[in-house]
Simulated scan of single mutants.
Amino acid sequence: MTWRGPTYRMVDGERIGGAWCHVWRRYRPDGEYYLDDLVVFADGAISCGEGTDLAGLAELLATGWLAATDPEAPPLPDEPSKWASRCGEPLTPEGFLLEVADRIEELNERPTAGQRCWDAIRRFQREPDESNRALLRAAYLSVPPHLRIYVLGDMDRQDRPLRILLTNVGEAVGGDGPVVTAEMHQGVLDYFGRGDEGVESEQEQRAVRHSDDPSEPGRPALVSHETVYPQGWPEQPGLFMLRNDFPARIVFAGESYASVLHGYWALSAADASDRGRIRDAASGREAHDLGGRAAHRSDWPDVRLAVMAGLVRAKFTQHPELAEVLVSTGDARISYTGLSDSPFWRDAPDARGRNWMGRLLELTRSELVARRLLRPEETPASGRR
């Protein structure tokens, strides 16, 4: 069973998170089954053509209105040996109900049956007595049967170490497995111990490799919205100063441009006359339109990112008041949105969105901060430049 998400529904203005999977449903008694979506929400509501809950889902499964597996699929052959089998238990309605209940716990950020099983393993490691082994057995059996082979995350041994540990000494695991000895129980404890050592070692290595990560959470993402001011920019445009069409005259590569957008599209043009018309356009938007219609330089796809980086750097180094606005965003991720720019530059809600403008703004911000740290006499607050 594969779960997908996220999804949600709104209840009284509150967003309720959810996830969904496929089930088989029929619309009339003794009718054919059709593939449908079963959606589970954090508040316990379940939707599959109609609203219900866990108890209602149990009834739908019991009466045959819903099925967790394809009813027309041929039954799987019996495994010759339960111990030697590499397959999990078959998915049953009861197991599916347990899995749905687990998904609700996960949506509420509460421990799932698998996580509770690991908690019981840790408890048994600390105190390997019979009472804790009984608790571990109960935790293991609460995992949906078809998912138990995955509970340890071990593709080779699957859940066999747990099955050994939960079998009494002198008994065969599952009836057809090896007869358990005290040494085998100790071997399982050693197995878990080696796993813990491996996890600790990996955590130590990660701490070393990621030692430059910020120790505190960063600021929430900052979204730079595209905007239009038909009557001219306001006296205090605030974060709209970050936009490429904001009028801030810059000098770049020996030419003067009224905005980053003027410079970018002028430099993209193959013909000198087009470059002049774009450079002298009345607004950034007009420069964009003219540049989009002009023939581009043949090397433009290869150099456009470097050109834009240089223009953005010129804008904020040549205008200290704009640099103050950019630096004030701290370490927030900058999402540069809109519709006018191509997905290469903006943060689009699909795989096409590269958000290169947001990245260049973040890079320039970092350069400005580093420059102030290395050359504090150049900061505007010092009164000297």
Rank of each mutant, 00 (worst) to 15 (best):
R4I: 08
P6Y: 12
P6H: 10
D12N: 15
C21L: 11
H22G: 09
R25F: 13
Y33M: 03
D36M: 04
V40M: 07
A42G: 02
D43I: 09
D43A: 10
G44Y: 08
D53K: 02
L60E: 01
A67D: 05
A68G: 04
P80V: 06
P93T: 03
E94Q: 15
G95C: 09
E99Q: 07
E105V: 05
N108K: 09
R116P: 05
D119F: 09
R123Q: 13
R126G: 13
D129G: 09
D129S: 11
G153F: 03
D154W: 10
D156L: 13
R157H: 14
R157V: 10
R160H: 10
E171G: 08
V173I: 10
G174I: 05
A182P: 03
G193M: 01
G195C: 08
D196V: 11
V199F: 11
E200L: 15
Q205A: 15
E216D: 09
P217M: 07
G218C: 03
V223Y: 03
H225E: 14
W233N: 02
P234W: 07
I250E: 00
F252S: 03
F252P: 00
A258V: 06
A270L: 13
L290F: 03
R297W: 07
L322G: 01
S328I: 06
S335D: 11
Y336F: 15
G338A: 08
G338H: 04
S340M: 15
D341F: 11
S342Q: 11
D347P: 05
A348D: 07
N355R: 07
W356I: 10
R359S: 12
S366N: 14
A370T: 10
P376M: 05
A381C: 13
R384I: 07
R385S: 14
